[in-house]
Simulated scan of single mutants.
Amino acid sequence: MKRIAVMTGLVAGLASVAVFLSSAGATSGAVTCGSGTHGGPGYAYAGLQSKSPGSGVRATITALSQPEVSAGHAAGWIGVGGPDSGPHGETMWLQTGFAAMPSTPLMVYAEVTRPGRAPAFVPLDTDVAVGESHRLAVLEMNRRPGVWRVWLDGKPVTDPIVLPGSHKRWEPLATAESWNGGVATCNDFRFRFERVGVAQSLGGSWRPFVPGYTFRDRGYSIHQLTPTTRGPRTLSARNFQAYAFDASSA
């Protein structure tokens, strides 16, 4: 299974429509619990990559506590693509999820990186409460291979997004992410991912998410949630076949 490099989108600012972002501000000298091995300097992850390619990924995401972000950002997101993941080595990705920055409310966002362009960050809901859940999806459109949309609570919220050569190429991701802003600091978060699924064909045909690779950088953890015949879900470290999981700072 070919592991895709994790996206290193940078939630560095907010405008009313979109913000174009760059990770150039991160410094390689800032090594702390917020610095991992899967992304650029200062990035750390706790999440999963699908075992097989798909035409989309969906999840219900909840922030179980208010992220404590002293610098940079913390996020819980689903998506496809990544650095150098295009058919000719282009950097392309599409993601959606929750994000938090210093002294700002939680938000729901989408982010797209097209070949040869900087990442474009689009706020979808800029005042999300702790404990509030949203159904999110990144999905290839029916009869339009390589054309994607972001969905929020059952409705498409972006125009069609063309990502050339992306059809049947990417293993979807569901992960939490921290970026330390280029300083020696740790960001705390706790995101819950439920009803995680992968689209087997254009437009849907959803199947349960089957993990193929785990991202678990120093200072962060993943706990699988498993159903019980009676009562609430419980945490389990056995038979790691996630349909739901918590990603958090340790």
Rank of each mutant, 00 (worst) to 15 (best):
G13D: 10
R207V: 01
V57H: 06
V112Q: 14
S50K: 06
S52N: 07
R238I: 12
T158E: 05
G13Q: 09
S248G: 03
L202M: 09
T229L: 13
G197A: 14
G13H: 09
Q224L: 12
F193P: 01
E177N: 03
L225I: 12
V19S: 13
D125M: 07
F121S: 10
L94T: 06
N239I: 04
F98R: 09
V157T: 09
G97Y: 02
F121P: 02
M101T: 14
P145H: 11
A59V: 03
R117P: 00
L225H: 05
A250S: 12
S28I: 10
V162I: 15
E177Q: 12
V11D: 10
W170A: 02
F189W: 04
A137N: 11
M1A: 14
S55C: 15
G54Y: 08
P87R: 03
Q224H: 02
G182E: 05
R216N: 12
L124A: 03
A15L: 11
Y213Q: 03
A247C: 08
P102W: 07
T228A: 14
S55R: 13
G76I: 09
G13Y: 12
T158Q: 06
A71C: 07
P145S: 12
F191W: 10
G131I: 07
A110I: 01
T226S: 15
A247M: 04
A44T: 09
F240K: 12
R218C: 08
K168Y: 00
P156G: 05
D246K: 01
R114N: 03
A26I: 00
M101D: 00
P83K: 10
A110Y: 04
S133C: 03
F193W: 05
S133L: 08
G219R: 00
A74D: 05
Q241Y: 13
P119F: 12
A15E: 14
G79M: 01
Q200N: 09
T8S: 14
F189C: 04
A26P: 00
W77R: 07
Y220C: 11
L94Y: 02
A71F: 05
D153I: 00
T104F: 01
R169D: 02
H223Y: 08
H134P: 05
S22D: 14
W179P: 01
A12W: 08
L163G: 09
R238F: 15
I161W: 10
L14K: 09
R114Y: 10
P87G: 02
S65W: 02
I61V: 15
V157S: 07
A5D: 08
G182N: 07
R143I: 03
F209G: 01
S133G: 06
V157L: 04
S236L: 08
A12T: 01
V157E: 10
G219W: 02
C186I: 07
H223M: 05
L48E: 07
Q66G: 10
H167D: 13
A75Q: 02
R195D: 15
P41L: 05
P172L: 06
G81N: 01
N187H: 11
R233Y: 11
G79R: 02
A46F: 04
A74Y: 04
M1E: 08
A100Q: 11
H88A: 15
L202W: 08
A75F: 00
S28E: 14
A99L: 00
I4Y: 01
S205R: 11
P67D: 03
V183E: 12
G39S: 06
A15W: 07
A247N: 03
G56F: 06
V162S: 14
A74T: 08
F209P: 00
P67A: 04
T185S: 14
G25K: 04
V112K: 09
L106A: 03
L235G: 09
P123H: 04
V196W: 00
